[in-house]
Amino acid sequence: MYTTELGKTRNVASTEDAEKLAAFEARVAADEFIEPKDWMPEAYRRTLTRQISQHAHSEIVGMLPEGNWIGRAPSLRRKAILLAKVQDEAGHGLYLYSAAETLGTSREEMIEALHSGKAKYSTIFNYPTLTWADIGAIGWLVDGAAIMNQVPLQRTSYGPYARAMVRVCKEESFHQRQGYEICMAMMAGSDDQRRMMQDAFNRWWWPSLMMFGPPDDNSPNTAQSMRWRIKRETNDELRQKFVDITVPQAEAIGLTVPDPALAWNEEKGGYDFGEIDWEEFYAVVRGEGPVARERITARRKAWEDGAWVRDAAAAHARKRSRKQEAA
């Protein structure tokens, strides 16, 4: 899964050693990797911490819409697969929290920021999963968009983030293929199943395009992030790529893209597509997504309900170390 860089960076006048800054910029420009103990400008650290932790939060919250269907998967095979996928998302969250922690923010602070609503996560997870077909659509489209975003991040300038992305990308391919397989099965089924699949596709198409973030002309941090190699391609470039490879996949199984403006543009060698409803996007970013409140409530409840397990583990560790001391 994935998150766009949603916060706005304040431009803080740097009082840091100009020489260090110049050396840092030169290293990044030469495609070198920055490691946790290397000197880095505060703004770089802050921007990365926010981006990686938002990405981690997205993985964690991303378990909820799919977890919703584990108990109702239509076969044991589908259930085992979905369970494995959701488990992967948890793993991805953990890789990313660990990477973010190397920048000096504790796990506890990040989780607190998520639960208090201060931290953002990808808007896509604030949409509900109404039918089984949604699970197919998510794997295929949402994970597909995530892959599109994450592949270039394997070359991002911050070493721990880049390495986490390598692991994530390796695992993500299964997610997309299992989703597409569900879509293929639905489209090869009854009229009702095909209708259900088309309905899910209609509902997930536009939110998936929004996953790439605001259009380039309204994405003030893009230039800085590109220069720092925190971002390697612009939102609109990635969105265009996604449309170009996804439309033929939809057509191949008989799905109709819910966009009357969609048309192949021979000249640019890509599809033209309709205007995205950015009002909706910004509303979801503000926390007005259809199930935004439900998601955070579920996260908080999971955290609170799990408190006794954390307490018990800590008590057990204390007991063992006392025993060892005594021995």
């Binding site: 697969i81 494995a84 597909g144 299964f174 293929r177 299992q178 597409y180 397989e181 293929m184 996949q249």
Partner: peptide, 19 residues
Amino acid sequence: DKVYRHPTFYDIPEGITHI
């Protein structure tokens, strides 16, 4: 016994690319 965790477990028909 969890081969379904690997992308190769899923058959994608020929002609469908980038997946």
